[in-house]
Design a protein around this nucleic acid. Structure first.
Length: 145
DNA sequence: TTTCTGACA
DNA sequence: TGTCAGAA
């Protein structure tokens, strides 16, 4: 099974900057909305100076995207922001856990098996996440040979 | 051409 | 929130 070990990201996501026009194209949120949300302190561009073109970080782009998603689901702006920020706060934990536990992935014709490492301290069982041919997902615990 | 701020038939 | 004006 292939080993996954990329500690260094190949792209510094902090260097991915987007202008307001790009943000509009990508997220579908209008410039008017972006400026209004900013005035309400829901979002904030990178080190904003007066009168200069706004620049948004990738992180803010994601936040904007999610706020808009919740709005389209019928939430009020305020509620959408709350949901988006809550989700936003969960991402680091998800990334950390996945990075720590993901040991490998094996893709075959009928299914994909994700290796999540040992199930117990005795190292007699291992946990696998399975995606079958129908897209169904489930866990599987197998004895270590 | 794009973005900025302010204003509202 | 959209849209228009006037400026940068």
């Amino acid at each position: 099974m292939a080993e996954l070990n990329s500690d260094e990201p190949f792209i510094d996501t902090n260097k991915l900057i987007f202008g307001i026009g790009q943000v509009q194209q990508i997220t579908g949120v209008s410039g008017r909305q972006l400026r209004y949300w900013e005035s309400q302190n829901y979002i904030s561009p990178i080190d904003q100076k007066k009168g200069v073109s706004r620049q948004y970080s990738l992180h803010t782009l994601f936040l904007i995207f999610h706020i808009n998603r919740f709005i389209q689901q019928g939430f009020t702006l305020q509620a959408a922001v709350d949901h988006a920020k809550e989700f936003d706060a969960q991402i680091p934990a998800l990334r950390q856990f996945l990075k720590k536990q993901l040991k490998g992935v094996e893709i075959s014709d009928d299914q994909t098996v994700i290796d999540f490492g040992y199930f117990n301290a005795q190292r007699t069982k291992r946990v696998y996440g399975v995606i079958d041919r129908n897209g169904q997902t489930f866990f599987e615990i197998r004895d270590v040979k």
